[in-house]
Simulated scan of single mutants.
Amino acid sequence: MDRLIYTAMTGARHVMEQQATVSNNLANATTNGFRAQLDSFRAVPVMSDGLPTRAFVVDSTVGSNFAAGPMQTTGRSLDIAIREQGWLAVQSADGSEAYTRNGSLRVNENGLLQTTSGQTLIGDGGPIAVPPDTNITIASDGTVSTVSTEFQPGPSNVLGRLKLVNPPTAGLLRGDDGLFRQADGTPAQNDPLVRIVDGVIEGSNVNPVDSMVNMISLARQFDMQMSLLKNAENNAAKATQILALG
């Protein structure tokens, strides 16, 4: 009886955890540059003095789906997208370096170039400060230039170059803030081969239809585990009645 209880209990718990992962993916189906999180299950037998008849369900986190999301043309000069592989380096809330594919940019009230999520972009010499009354252009290699709107035509002024990196995806870990970092904690090196496209934004690589189908499947799996626990309870009650008659 306890074999059934342990298997159903661990199965139901990890189904709930995977439902939370799929729900998070669905919630970010419209988040620019979002990478879907992947989970999988595996059965692990419980080794004891007797026969290995018990098995636990273990959630094996595969990681993230690093496939590129759909590209959407916006025509906005502060919308950029990474061509193929690569990442934008940003400064996270704790001051550490992190990486994102969200190329929807803005200039904050202090004149710093940031993502729309509030992370400051890192350049070759640190954060990039944009002077007022200027138009911003970003070249394919990440060079940020401005042209004054007070003079026609105004001179071009190079402010710096965005830090573009391309670390191995196997060594990247997703943080609670949704940003990626290297597993060893060291900053990635600038990769001159990474290129960007301006006027284009990369969407999320989450497929809403597949995620909804997965949610329905997980809900049915959870109901099945609950049915197994109910059957175990009924079997225990009947066994108690038989023992009482004896």
Rank of each mutant, 00 (worst) to 15 (best):
A139C: 14
T21Q: 02
T143Y: 12
V22W: 02
I138C: 07
L228P: 12
L228W: 12
T74G: 15
A239R: 12
Q221R: 14
R13I: 05
F66Q: 08
D59S: 13
V206L: 02
M212T: 07
G63A: 08
Q189W: 01
D133N: 14
A8F: 09
I128L: 11
G175V: 05
G86Q: 03
T31F: 02
N25K: 01
D223H: 06
T30F: 06
W87G: 00
I82R: 07
R101T: 02
V158R: 15
P131A: 09
D49G: 14
A139V: 10
P155K: 14
A237S: 15
G203Y: 11
N110E: 15
Q119D: 14
G103M: 07
I80S: 04
Q189T: 09
N32A: 13
L121A: 02
H14I: 04
G86S: 06
L172Q: 07
L162A: 06
N166W: 06
M224N: 11
D210E: 00
I80R: 04
A188K: 03
D124C: 03
A55W: 13
T61H: 11
V194H: 01
D39R: 00
G125K: 11
L243W: 09
A89T: 03
T74M: 15
L243V: 13
L193D: 07
Q72G: 13
A81K: 14
S145N: 12
T10G: 10
T143C: 13
A237K: 12
P155V: 07
Q241W: 07
I82S: 03
T7M: 15
E97C: 01
T240R: 11
L162V: 00
V197G: 12
M226F: 04
R42P: 09
Q182F: 05
T100N: 05
P155N: 12
S156F: 13
Q114H: 04
Q114Y: 01
D141Y: 08
A29Y: 06
M224Y: 08
T115N: 04
I5F: 11
S40W: 03
S145I: 01
P70L: 08
S211D: 00
T10E: 13
E202H: 10
D184A: 00
Q182T: 10
G185I: 03
N235E: 12
Q85S: 08
G126D: 09
R106F: 05
